[in-house]
């Protein structure tokens, strides 16, 4: 594989991890517009642990994910009291605050950025993304995932069915944050550098954008969305500076004609049925 291809695959991996971090709470109807803040939490925690305390990578990166998850649990209680647009904006503000705090934290280099001494290669990043994907595929076959969709559809009925709506929402939010933290930890160790400016509003917002582009009805939507978002600008590379113009036009046109996203439940059902049909035909 060429360096270019590997580089692209690494970016795709980071985008896939971020996509699932956004997707999980979104499948319960909660829009997290501050995912970059949780990535920053994971990135800085992991970097600090491996730099200053000489933790091995295998401990530092999961610890970064855990720190991000913990932060989410702490803020979930007040933040998830808000709903809909208020929740989206609360997470938006939270993301900004987290990033700004790291921007001012001298112990991790503040605005100058933070060098990470341990390096991890593309293989780890790709394995991380594959791990997240496998985890999400497994999770999508559980009651938990079913309940999240049920809550998104109708929280009142879900509650009357005996489901702990708030508990499920907090869990989805916190697991999403842990995934974001994992992505952040991998990011810092792969690029050997963490700077708060990277974890911007744009990062959060673009992630949400390609998750919705892929579609939130099924677990494959975010994967397809991330792949699309990574690869389409590359395909448009020939158009140079204009590629994001075409990309944006595509997004607008796409959402106007197919607002439910690329991959929908019905689409998968049709696909499965057509695959099952020939088998059923055999005696």
């Amino acid at each position: 594989m060429s360096g270019y291809q590997t580089g692209l695959l690494v970016i795709l991996s980071f985008n896939v991890i971020a996509a699932y971090a956004v997707y999980l709470p979104l499948s319960a109807g909660q829009l997290n517009l501050g995912i970059a803040g949780f990535m920053a939490m994971g990135a800085y925690t992991a970097a600090y642990l491996s730099n200053e305390l000489a933790w091995p990578l295998t401990a530092a990166i999961p610890a970064g994910a855990a720190a991000s998850c913990l932060l989410a649990l702490v803020v979930a209680v007040p933040i998830l009291r808000t709903h809909g647009i208020y929740l989206a904006l609360a997470t938006f503000a939270l993301g900004q605050v987290i990033t700004a705090v790291f921007l001012n934290l001298e112990v991790v280099g503040a605005a100058a950025g933070y060098q990470v001494t341990t390096f991890t290669g593309p293989a780890t990043v790709i394995a991380g993304a594959a791990g997240v994907l496998a985890f999400m595929l497994l999770l999508s076959r559980t009651r938990f995932a079913l309940y999240l969709t049920a809550i998104k559809s109708d929280p009142t009925v879900a509650d009357l069915m005996g489901i702990n709506v708030r508990g499920m929402q907090i869990a989805a939010f916190a697991i999403g944050a842990a995934i974001a933290g994992l992505g952040g930890g991998l990011y810092g160790h792969h690029f050997s550098f963490v700077e708060a400016q990277h974890f911007s509003v744009a990062l959060s917002v673009y992630t949400v954008l390609y998750v919705l582009l892929g579609g939130t009805q099924t677990v494959f939507g975010p994967l397809v969305g991330a792949a699309f978002f990574t690869l389409l600008p590359e395909l448009l590379r020939a158009s140079q500076g204009w590629r994001y113009v075409f990309f944006a036009l595509f997004i607008i046109g796409f959402m106007a004609t197919r607002p439910q996203g690329l991959i929908t439940a019905d689409l998968l059902r049709v696909f499965r049925r057509s695959r099952r049909a020939p088998e059923a035909a055999q005696p």
């Binding site: 979104l26 809909g84 994001y244 990309f247 944006a248 959402m255």
Partner: peptide, 25 residues
């Protein structure tokens, strides 16, 4: 107008598309 009957996040995404479009133009 196109997304009045779909999920509440959809108009947000396409309006974001316009932001990306304008900036990159």
């Amino acid at each position: 107008r196109r997304s009045q009957k779909s999920d509440p996040e959809v108009p947000l995404v396409s309006s974001l598309g316009f932001l990306v479009l304008l900036e990159n133009l």
